[in-house]
């Protein structure tokens, strides 16, 4: 199959008509990435990063501990209630069992404390905040995910899907996603900007600027190593060292628009 035909086929897999840019984005990442793209009516793709089984397991464990903690605390505090105590505890147990996640998901955080601790959030498939109906659906169907024992169905479902949905998520059309971390901004360094030694494609420009943004978080040795890869850009092909690094960072400043 020649290249055109291949790209034609992969284009056909994407059922929706995306703008060329969006299409490229989705196809490029489709190979390795688990990212899901939700398209808005404005034709913008919103990137959602589904959370995998490990992160969700940790979140669940934290929530489980919190639930048990709440129950013990409540049974301790309610000791003076007399006859009403048992009634209170039964109802609390019911609420913790079925509605603990619902209450938190519908709050402004969109996630239980366990999920918040791991930077996770529950959203609809289209990236919008979760609706009450969807939250209830995914959490009532948790019982089916629990079958046959110890979340067996949930495990199988999550391992088989690229977007790591358990059965409740499939039925409710929801997604557990990582909340995006802020990307560091390249510092406005006092380096004299330097024009690149050759014309650079947009992706290459982006890579060099991204390196400059990470510079402050890398050890000098590692920074030199990485900068050496981009040495040709600074007119220093085959060389490496702090001087090359300085020149590459200077090129980054130029690419950002300093003249």
């Amino acid at each position: 199959m020649n290249r055109d035909a291949a790209s034609h086929v992969s284009g056909g897999v994407l059922r929706y008509q995306l703008s060329t840019i969006n299409c490229q984005l989705a196809v490029n990442n489709a190979v390795l990435d688990t990212a899901v793209y939700a398209e808005t009516p404005e034709g913008i793709l919103i990137e959602l990063r589904p959370a995998g089984i490990v992160a969700r397991f940790y979140a669940f464990s934290i929530d489980f501990a919190i639930r048990i903690g709440i129950f013990f605390l409540a049974s301790f505090v309610s000791a003076g209630l007399g006859m009403l105590r048992l009634a209170f505890l039964f109802i609390l147990m019911f609420v913790l069992e079925w509605f603990y996640p619902v209450l938190f998901e519908l709050s402004r955080w969109g996630a239980t404390p366990g999920k918040q601790a791991l930077g996770l959030k529950v959203v609809m498939d289209n990236g919008l905040p979760i609706t009450p109906a969807a939250s209830l659906t995914r959490n009532l169907l948790r019982f089916a995910d629990f079958l046959p024992l110890m979340y067996g169905f949930a495990f199988v479902s999550m391992l088989m899907r690229k977007d790591f949905k358990r059965l409740g998520d499939i039925a409710a059309a929801t997604l557990v996603v990582h909340q995006p971390l802020p990307v560091p901004k390249p510092a406005q360094q006092d380096i004299e900007p330097l024009a690149p030694a050759r014309t650079l494609a947009p992706q290459d420009q982006a890579a060099i600027i991204a390196l400059a943004a990470r510079a402050s978080r890398l050890t000098p040795e590692r920074l030199d190593e990485l900068a050496a890869i981009a040495a040709p850009v600074a007119g220093a092909e085959g060389k490496s060292g702090p001087e090359v690094t300085r020149r590459v960072l200077a090129v980054a400043q130029w690419l950002l628009g300093k003249r």
Partner: peptide, 27 residues
Amino acid sequence: ESDWVMFGLYIRNNIGIAFQCFASGLT
């Protein structure tokens, strides 16, 4: 047992059973 205790128990058991009955429809 007092009326209130039974009220709590009925809520936990009966509504729980109904939810299970619904959720196990997934099988």
